[in-house]
Nucleic acid binder design. Structure first.
Lengths: 149, 149
DNA sequence: CGAATTACATAGGCAAACTATATAGGTGGA
DNA sequence: TCCACCTATATAGTTTGCCTATGTAATTCG
């Protein structure tokens, strides 16, 4: 009992959470999902080449070139030539990009906290216990899928 | 103990889940989040006027007019004049729209299941138990926020 | 050394959002 | 009744972010 009563609970929860995060927890900057993920990748793993960033984010190389031009115009990333290969351009996160990313995360966390504050203490506790149990599994899933991120 | 070890577990889980759903569980159709949510609203609540749909989805009226024109061109929605008010256009879901929506949900569920199949039985069980606990709370949160959907 | 390959850029198109504004239909007061 | 105002939707023009097709410069290999 229990599990069979709602076999699609994972799917429904994931969909519900996605709607919540995409529609009700806005970011303070105008960064798209791809833009934020690209900056995050640069923050975690250091300078990368454009083609690498494109495949990591699942977009085409021209799309990534265009995105990076906007991010560069906004001062969030910089370009460095690759000393070992004249064709390659290495993209690195700037100070401003790092700050933007940290601010984005803390702002969204704060906004989510505001929403969670409308729940009862008990409901919040249920959510926190469930999140702690599910987080490692969900992270494993994403990291397996995004091995090249 | 436990809770304090990772106070941002809910935020991290929600972000991780969002990335998973947005980047790794694609829909079979090309519907945007707003398009799918609009069709879903029509499916659940029947014909609505354009302005109503726009405010429900948090977009402007011209954006909704444009979206509905594309959905109408694709045969997913139809237009009916309001007999009581000549200015009003009522939008209704077509048969094809209904089929598209059902197909979308079942396809995404199947794709998610494929991903979940890469986990161990134990990991999947952890996720399912967590989802069953968290789902009612998450749904309450979204329904409170999207009361006019 | 020249041909093929690789890395990135450019051009042009579509989707989906926005603001500002136009038009047609409805409503209310002098 | 009629005109002024309000409301519902449509149109125009801009921006972002994705796409495909193609161009150019650098590297590698036969």
């Amino acid at each position: 009992m229990g599990v069979d009563q709602n076999p699609a609970a994972v799917g429904e929860l994931f969909e519900t959470v996605t709607v919540l995060m995409m529609r009700h927890v806005p970011a303070p900057d105008g960064l798209s999902l791809t833009a934020a993920a690209t900056l995050g990748s640069l923050q975690r793993r250091g300078p990368r080449r454009i083609t690498e960033l494109a495949t990591a984010q699942g977009v085409t190389q021209p799309s990534m070139t265009q995105l990076l031009r906007r991010l560069e115009d906004a001062g969030l990333v910089g370009r460095v030539p690759d000393p070992t290969d004249g064709r390659v351009v290495l993209i690195e996160l700037t100070e401003a990009g790092d700050r933007t990313l940290r601010n984005r995360w803390s702002t969204r966390l704060a906004r989510l906290d505001t929403l969670l504050a409308t729940l009862s203490d008990e409901e919040r506790a249920v959510l926190e216990r469930a999140a702690e149990a599910a987080l490692p599994v969900a992270q494993k899933l994403v990291h397996t899928l995004a091995a090249r991120d």
